[in-house]
């Protein structure tokens, strides 16, 4: 039983981090129907900014963590302002292609820094001894990661449901023309969506970097790894990202814990989530919580 519980706990931890990493996709898609392919690079940039402020800037890790969220807030907002603002009203595929180009540009910039070709690690900030919850254990880094994830996701959910700007963002997502007709500034909403996505990416980068160490390839890969999570949850649903993240995390742990190494199976943790994703999408093509749009022809 303790084995089962440990797998569930590990699955929740991993799933929460997936959810936080996927949140940036959701925030941008929710307001602009655009998929930001460069999201993984922003996750990595957030982690590197946190490291720079902590190790080279001498700031405490927690302060660097929040400051890096601020930096990526403005960074992502600038990216939207410079590269994407002109594409409002253009076909979505054009915008997605721009984000692919953006990915290459960010890659190039990061490769020019020491982070592009070297490994780094955050100073050990949390106690090394794990927290034992009965028969299961969790590290401090993981626990803090999960707490930050749930706080941020809670804040974003509240923001979209209750705040005026959040409601404006949802309105823009539903109908840009109608939103403009009631005085909502669509460009401002897009800029804010990118900025919030940048902020969540920095948080994800900081947490992942604390777990895996700072390796550019590992960090930016999370932009792709979490893609099935946001598809499964429904591209425009924050709750969906959380539920799908946890489902994926738990499935991965169960697959690794119960299937791998038996009957000649190996690597099921990497494959099974995709199989389940395909099955669920067969029945719910918009994901678990995605908006099912009805188009009248």
């Amino acid at each position: 039983m303790s084995y089962f519980l440990q797998l569930v706990l590990s699955g929740i931890v991993v799933g929460s981090i997936y959810a936080l990493s996927g949140l940036g996709f959701v925030l941008i898609y929710k307001s602009s129907r655009v998929l930001n392919i460069a999201h993984g690079q922003i996750i990595a940039a957030g982690a590197f900014i946190t490291y720079t402020l902590t190790v080279w800037g001498g700031l405490p890790l927690y302060l660097s963590f929040f400051l890096s969220m601020g930096v990526t807030f403005f960074l992502a907002m600038s990216v939207e302002r410079i590269f994407l603002r002109r594409l409002i009203g253009e076909p979505i595929i054009s915008v997605i292609m721009v984000t692919i180009g953006l990915m290459s540009i960010l890659d190039g910039i990061i490769y020019l820094t020491p982070f592009g070709g070297s490994n780094f690690s955050f100073p050990e900030f949390f106690p090394k001894t794990p927290i034992n919850l009965g028969p299961v254990s969790i590290s401090w880094t993981q626990l803090v990661g999960v707490i930050i994830t749930f706080i941020l996701i809670g804040l974003f959910s509240w923001f979209f449901k209750k705040s005026t700007i959040g409601i404006s963002m949802r309105a823009v997502s539903d109908d840009q023309l109608a939103s403009m007709s009631v005085g909502i500034s669509v460009p401002r909403v897009f800029g804010l969506a990118w900025a919030l996505a940048g902020m969540s990416a920095a948080a994800a980068g900081g947490i992942i970097g604390n777990i895996t160490g700072l390796n550019f390839e590992t960090l930016h890969a999370f932009g792709i790894i979490v893609f099935p999570v946001v598809i499964l949850g429904g591209l425009d649903s924050i709750v969906g990202a959380v539920v799908a993240g946890i489902i994926m995390g738990v499935i991965q742990q169960f697959a690794s814990g119960y299937l791998d190494g038996k009957w000649g199976l190996n690597g099921t943790a990497d494959v099974l989530p995709y199989i389940i994703l395909l099955i669920i999408l067969l029945f719910k093509p918009h994901g678990l919580f995605g908006t099912h749009e009805i188009e009248r022809v």
Binding site: I225, G257, N266, G267
Partner: peptide, 22 residues
Amino acid sequence: VEVVEHGKDLDNTAMLQRLMSK
């Protein structure tokens, strides 16, 4: 006993405990 091909794992608990059980 086992050959494990890793992915981009954030948590290896399941794998480590499986190896211990073997």
